[in-house]
């Protein structure tokens, strides 16, 4: 399976047509249609009925479709969520491996009865409680459907830790460290972003978003996501390698190939050491840049086609 590109993604209440019907215009790599915390209890059934409509809307812009279910109602939510076109079921407040194994079994059955290729619907396990952090390894290793993992941050985690967020220092060092370490140990994509001081909690802060995305990219992180359309473009841009970085990576690889031909394992290129680690990093960066370019072309073509179809209808 090719490495998914998930630089940007908006989480939105699936019961709100104002958000869902415009979701394809946002240029998101993925869309996370929510059945959970942004949907009131009284609207859960209605929300479940909206999944297929949301898939159609989101796909107009070629976004990858994710559905966030309620951890308390997997048996009701999963049958409503797993349809052709859905790439990932996001499971919030994951606390045990057993929850994930149960989810995997539900998805497996629905893939079978709905003609979806077996094993292709991924699980996004989101850790949002201290118990989830404590059980991170068993959660992340509970299903081969999990391909990315990160540490617990955010409002739910803050509540469980008894802390106020946005106080100007990193309160989740341990959580993030555990998540990233476990992702690396299990060969998964590391999720999350680097810490940057934010004392406002403004979910639409584009300036902060681009700084964080660029810093995250340099830290080897590749995924983003948010709640406000303002952060989509900054994340797409910030998590994509720049032209200069790609050129530099090609030079590193050429230099390393020359070293290799001479039977050497490391050498000095413009005052910096190039060795097999630098070469591997350059290779990953070139591959990532190519995947990002492909993803951008895919989304752009889909949006153009949708606009043309709409023009034709009018």
């Amino acid at each position: 399976m090719p490495r998914p590109v998930r630089r940007s993604g908006l989480t939105m209440p699936i019961n709100n047509p104002r958000f869902v019907d415009r979701s394809w215009t946002r240029d998101c790599d993925y869309l996370n249609f929510d059945l959970e915390d942004s949907v009131p209890q009284s609207q859960k059934d209605y929300a479940r009925s909206q999944v297929r409509h949301a898939i159609v809307q989101g796909q107009k812009g070629a976004a990858e479709i994710n559905i966030r279910i309620n951890c308390a109602y997997p048996d009701a939510d999963v049958p409503a969520a797993v349809w052709p076109g859905v790439k990932q079921i996001n499971f919030p407040k994951a606390e045990t491996g057993a929850q994930i194994r149960h989810l995997d079994a539900l998805i497996t059955e629905l893939e079978r009865v709905r003609g979806i290729r077996s094993g292709t619907v991924r699980i996004g396990a989101t850790v949002e409680t201290t118990l989830g952090v404590a059980n991170s390894y068993e959660i992340a290793s509970a299903s081969p459907r999990i391909d990315a993992f990160g540490g617990g941050t955010g409002y739910d985690m803050s509540m469980d830790m008894g802390i106020e967020m946005f106080v100007g220092f990193d309160q989740f060092v341990y959580n993030r460290g555990e998540g990233e370490l476990i992702a690396l140990a299990l060969g998964l994509e590391r999720e999350g972003g680097v810490y940057m001081s934010d004392t406002t909690g403004n979910v639409g802060n584009a300036e902060l978003s681009i700084k964080r995305a660029e810093a995250s990219r340099k830290a080897g992180l590749r995924t983003g996501g948010g709640l406000h359309p303002n952060v989509v473009a900054p994340q797409n841009l910030g998590l994509t390698p720049t032209v200069n970085e790609v050129e530099d990576a090609h030079r590193v690889l050429s230099f390393f190939a020359e070293l290799d031909q001479r039977g050497e394992t490391e050498g000095d290129m413009d005052g910096r050491i190039v060795d097999k680690y630098e070469a591997a990093r350059a290779e990953e960066l070139i591959e990532w840049a190519s995947l990002c370019a492909h993803r951008d072309a895919e989304k752009s073509a889909a949006r153009e086609q949708t606009v043309a179809e709409l023009d034709e209808q009018n």
Partner: peptide
């Protein structure tokens, strides 16, 4: 919630109130 939404803007801010913020 009474109006049928669980994503409520907090007036005068960019903050959205949802279940965890309320909790």
């Amino acid at each position: 919630v009474a109006r049928g939404t669980a994503a409520v803007p907090y007036p005068g801010t960019t903050m959205m109130i949802d279940v965890p913020v309320d909790e």
